[in-house]
């Protein structure tokens, strides 16, 4: 049943926080190389959904299969999945006590068991790709928000993930920094990375998304290709949401 054609498969996934039913029957198949943008009002469960994919949150019913591996309580499988999946957070979550370079090499050295020299080469390669190799010896606290988020992307890419998850990567940034982060993400998309991206940057969605998913109250309300999604939304809830974020 678990098809390896799909990078991520969610089958009837349900999740509760205590009594609160936060994810309701989520079904989602993401093909290899597909780019998915997830949007929806605050509190609709977007973060919870993508955090289930690398088991930062545990689901209570249904199946989640990542790269052919089903997520269960088996810690070994969780580790395997986390090796395949990179994640970028709204608040970057860089390690403030380590330099930019050390942030990038930490997991290479301690998880991938790579020699330090080699790890630094890999890290520099990705820091160049996000266009901040010159900041390698600074501490995260000395960088701007946009630079920090690009370091966070480089840190994930160093682990050579098959899937990248983004949870509102630009929401904590000042307007003039959003572009530099989106540019990196567009470039990543063009290179064929499988991406699941929670964002309200509709320009980005139109440009790179293969599919846009709209969530509300823990459900997938509507999903479609970007062009029909934006121009001809089917559900009233989607129409309302789009009118709110587009016309202000």
């Amino acid at each position: 049943m678990a098809s390896t054609d799909f990078a991520v498969q969610m089958i009837n996934v349900n999740k509760w926080y205590g009594e609160f039913h936060v994810l309701k029957d989520i079904n989602l198949n993401v093909s290899v190389g597909e780019r998915i943008v997830i949007c929806g009002p605050s509190g609709s469960g977007k973060s919870t959904m993508i955090r289930c994919i690398n088991r930062l949150e545990e689901h209570q019913a249904g199946q989640i299969i990542v790269g052919g591996i089903e997520l269960t309580h088996d810690l070994k499988r969780i580790d395997e999945v986390r090796r395949e999946v990179g994640m970028c957070f709204q608040h970057f979550n860089l390690f403030p006590h380590l330099t930019v370079l050390e942030n990038c090499t930490l997991a290479l050295i301690w998880v991938r068991k790579m020699p330090k020299k080699k790890a630094e080469e890999v890290a520099m390669h990705y820091l160049e790709r996000v266009k901040i190799p010159e900041q390698m010896n600074k501490f995260p606290g000395q960088l701007s928000g946009g630079q920090q988020q690009r370091v966070a992307i480089a840190r994930s890419l160093c682990m050579n993930p098959k899937v990248m998850l983004f949870d509102e990567p630009t929401s904590a940034l000042d307007p003039e920094m959003i572009k530099e982060v989106l540019d990196v993400m567009v470039q990543l998309a063009e290179e064929g990375m499988t991406m699941l991206c929670v964002t309200h940057e509709m320009g980005f969605a139109k440009l790179v998304a293969d599919r846009v998913i709209f969530m509300d109250a823990g459900q997938v309300v509507e999903e479609n290709k970007p062009e029909p999604f934006f121009n001809d939304p089917q559900n009233d809830r989607t129409k309302l949401f789009l009118s709110q974020i587009l016309n202000h």
Binding site: N54, R55, L56, D79, R82, R83, V85, G86, M87, F89, H91, N93, L94, F95, L106, A107, W110, V111, A152, R155, S156, M159
Partner: peptide, 20 residues
């Protein structure tokens, strides 16, 4: 977020405690 970032990188309990 620090725990989550360490988890997401696959560091595991002891490594994320000792290194992060």
């Amino acid at each position: 977020g620090q725990h989550e970032a360490a988890d997401a990188l696959g560091l595991g309990y002891w490594k994320s405690m000792l290194l992060v």
